[in-house]
Simulated assay, not measured.
Amino acid sequence: MANTPQAKKRIRRNQARAIVNGARVSRIRTFIKQVESALTAGDKDAAKAAMTKVQPELARGVAKGVVHKNTAARKMSRLTKRVAALG
């Protein structure tokens, strides 16, 4: 257990940030799932529309430190490749 006031405050802050960060990651996953569901349905227009929503969400996740830069780049690359293959 934390002894110092600073350590106690750190625990409280970390718990609060974990909730916010978890929501961010969940939001990103939701947008990715929308693209994947459009891909499985074979709907190129819906997939492209969903891709335009995923890109800023992933970039925001990287900026906030929730997703690693290379992970976001890899996900975007793979999704973009799959959307382009639909055509």
Score class of each variant (00 low, 15 high):
27 R>K: 11
7 A>H: 03
71 T>F: 05
24 R>L: 11
8 K>D: 08
3 N>S: 09
56 P>F: 01
1 M>K: 08
66 V>R: 00
41 A>Q: 14
36 E>P: 10
74 R>K: 07
27 R>Q: 10
69 K>E: 09
66 V>T: 05
47 A>E: 05
10 R>I: 00
30 T>A: 01
39 L>M: 09
24 R>E: 09
36 E>Y: 08
82 R>K: 13
54 V>S: 00
11 I>P: 04
21 N>T: 03
2 A>D: 00
12 R>H: 04
44 K>H: 15
31 F>S: 12
77 S>F: 07
34 Q>M: 05
37 S>G: 14
59 A>G: 03
63 A>L: 13
63 A>Q: 11
85 A>W: 15
40 T>N: 15
44 K>S: 13
50 A>S: 04
17 R>T: 02
20 V>N: 01
13 R>K: 10
76 M>E: 09
40 T>G: 14
39 L>V: 10
87 G>F: 10
44 K>M: 15
32 I>L: 08
50 A>D: 04
32 I>F: 00
61 G>C: 03
65 G>Q: 01
80 T>Y: 02
18 A>Y: 02
79 L>R: 04
33 K>H: 15
53 K>G: 02
39 L>P: 13
34 Q>G: 14
21 N>G: 03
15 Q>V: 10
24 R>V: 01
40 T>D: 15
52 T>R: 02
31 F>L: 15
52 T>V: 06
58 L>E: 01
50 A>C: 02
35 V>P: 12
51 M>K: 09
19 I>A: 10
38 A>T: 14
77 S>P: 05
80 T>F: 04
67 V>S: 01
85 A>E: 15
37 S>H: 07
50 A>Y: 04
61 G>I: 04
57 E>F: 01
40 T>C: 06
22 G>D: 02
60 R>T: 04
5 P>D: 11
31 F>I: 15
